[in-house]
Design a protein around this nucleic acid. Structure first.
Lengths: 221, 221
DNA sequence: TGTCATAGATACAAGCTTGCATCTATGTGT
DNA sequence: ACACATAGATGCAAGCTTGTATCTATGACA
């Protein structure tokens, strides 16, 4: 099996439908399209240089994620962030992450490996913060929490959590950027959460997490 | 606001895509199509007397629910129930229901109304059991648990839970039908769950629920 | 001569384009 | 204020193109 270099790379062009999906989703999640905005298949199709069909496919997928709402014979409206969505997201995240930790401990998963991964994620976040990369900080934060969820080993909740992260990202676009000292608090709280996991203390984790999420993501407090 | 009867009922024919979605989903959830089965757009389209386009839309929606997997140029395979899916579903249900109760109590929701609805659901389930309607028993059981989730007031988790119920239904098709005395146990445990809610004791609920779900849905025990 | 590997042909299925019918909302004229 | 014409957008259908698997026939080798 000598294959020194990739032989003439059989690149397959990304399907048009996937491009349309990614582009449109980015428009919605980035907040570039405000809630309530009405968009049409033809518009996007023209902008992306493709026909309406792949765009329609993209719209259907986004409707399944409740980011778009297709209105018969009218178009697709960007679903506005419902009132109370922030609460719902945080509540759901808390439930999923807590359940993941309980399951990890209950089923005797590899706690040390998880702890290592989490501490590495904290370190990455610290580096991003020192580099002043705000988007990088947010990414690392998401990676930290996703690592917790993945450790639980429940594919269904992990998938659900990915959708929650999307929605949170969409809301964060309208929120204030975290200030440096807030990042320090986040890092410290993350460390505490990891300590609780390392101590195999799910109850302590369950107490720490809501405070962490509320404190981080609720501007009013 | 006098609208005595519906005036000339403006019935709109159900869109072809919705019919295709419902029909195909039923095929999968009922277990009529085994996991791994390969089906094609053309087949379904012909059977339902429509073109491939709405069928394709249905397939896309089902792929978003991870019930179908579209394989380029090949067809759509019915995603087999993954190993460990039963565990994942029960784990996720436990997390969602427990979180719903905690939230209901934390936010001072209308506990008496919820309790009333739950006791009514138990009563319906008892009636279905006495009538010997096994499907009715299963429906009432789902309604009971869904009532708990809805009481939490989190739209995101409620939606997630609906998908869990679908997957559970699909798995139940291959499971044994419950025996009458098992139904009695279920009813008694439901009553205990409601009592915990009425007593506003989320911790007791969190202890009772896993035992209930495990005992009911894990044949091996 | 029999068996196996292989290359070519064929059938099938999706990805996408295009076109048409239908429905909704809007604006105009009386 | 109301009816009607019109523009715009989707819902659906049919056809074309492309990619994949399967079948078959041919040739090499034992």
């Amino acid at each position: 099996m000598t294959r020194p270099t990739r032989p003439t790379r059989p690149i397959r062009p990304e399907p048009a439908a996937d491009r349309a999906y990614a582009a449109t989703k980015e428009l919605v999640l980035s907040g570039d399209l405000p809630g309530g905005h009405l968009l049409s298949e033809g518009d996007i199709a023209e902008r992306l240089g493709m026909s309406r069909t792949p765009v329609r496919e993209a719209f259907l997928r986004l409707q399944a994620e409740e980011l778009l709402q297709l209105i018969p014979k009218r178009g697709a409206v960007v679903v506005p962030v419902p009132a109370g969505e922030a609460d719902d997201v945080l509540d759901a995240r808390e439930a999923v992450e807590t359940a993941a930790v309980r399951r990890l401990l209950r089923r005797g998963g590899d706690v040390p490996a998880t702890v290592d991964r989490l501490r590495a994620a904290i370190e990455r976040q610290r580096e991003q913060a020192e580099a002043g990369d705000l988007a990088g900080v947010a990414d690392a934060d998401e990676a930290f929490h996703r690592t917790i969820v993945d450790a639980g080993g429940n594919r269904l909740t992990a998938r659900f959590y990915a959708g929650l992260a999307d929605r949170q990202r969409r809301m964060s676009m309208h929120a204030l950027a975290p200030r440096p000292q807030q990042v320090a608090v986040v890092l410290a709280e993350h460390a505490e959460l990891v300590d609780a996991i390392e101590a195999r203390d799910a109850d302590r984790f369950a107490v720490l997490l809501p405070a962490h999420l509320d404190g981080t993501h609720r501007p009013g407090r």
